[in-house]
Amino acid sequence: MTADEAYRWLIEGTAPGADPFDAHVLASILALAIAEGGTSGNVPAHAGLDRAALARLAQSLFPGCAARLAALATRDPPPPEVEQDAVRDLLAAHATGQGPLGRPLAAMIARRAMEADHLWQDLGLNDRDELSALLDRHFAPLARQNVDGMKWKRFFYRKLCEAEGFVLCTAPVCTACQDVEMCFGEESGEARLARVGRVGREGSAPHPRR
């Protein structure tokens, strides 16, 4: 199943009354995970959830897809990397309210943040604005600290470094830094969901990591 096929399938199986934006976000992340690991039962490893957590999410948000999704998720993910755990814990500590999506979203975002593209691309979203809306909705206390519009991955690592008493860079202010583009540059590019879907249709090799 290609990523775009998986996305349409998940959206069609969304629970009645589910929030459309949340359904779009979760379907985007899971569609990439299905495209990347579905044939080997490794959807959990690419989604950042173990099989039990993935099953709970599917039953609550995509009940029409739960049975088939379980068949694509036959293996639990390996232990997460230290960085992945740190990003997950950072997000979970700033979850907005007591909603049921905060914990699984923290884990999924942390796993996808280990990929090589902009975070919005790693999550299968259309652009940075969608990612900002997602973080503002579910992790508002953290998202609203990014007042200067730093790239989200860079911002997460900055917060983690600050929590450990480290300084991410040596420049006194961002405007004096020669690498300011690394933190604040334009986040353009093709939506990864579209790219993976196109590659699957063409039967080409996966896009290389950059």
Rank of each mutant, 00 (worst) to 15 (best):
K151N: 04
A143P: 05
Q98L: 12
A143M: 05
A70Y: 00
P77A: 02
S40P: 00
E130H: 04
A55I: 07
L123Y: 01
P78I: 12
D136R: 13
E83T: 14
P80F: 00
D129C: 00
A70E: 09
L49V: 00
S60F: 09
Q98V: 09
G97D: 07
G99L: 09
L123K: 05
R88F: 04
E130V: 01
S132Y: 11
C65I: 03
Q98T: 15
L119F: 02
D117W: 11
L105I: 04
P77C: 01
H46S: 02
A71M: 05
W120C: 03
H118V: 01
V87A: 12
A45R: 15
P141C: 03
R103H: 13
R112Q: 06
L49M: 02
Q121G: 00
L135P: 05
A133T: 15
R103A: 14
D148C: 10
D129I: 08
L125W: 11
D117M: 05
P141K: 02
V43P: 03
A110C: 08
E130P: 02
R103M: 09
R75L: 15
P100F: 13
A58N: 04
C65M: 04
Q145I: 07
A73Q: 09
K153M: 10
R137H: 14
L69W: 01
L72R: 06
D85Y: 10
M150A: 12
A73M: 10
R144F: 05
L142Q: 02
P141N: 06
D50R: 13
A93K: 08
V82C: 06
A95V: 15
D117S: 06
I109H: 05
L57Y: 03
W120Q: 05
E81Q: 11
Q121C: 02
E115K: 13
A140N: 13
N126C: 08
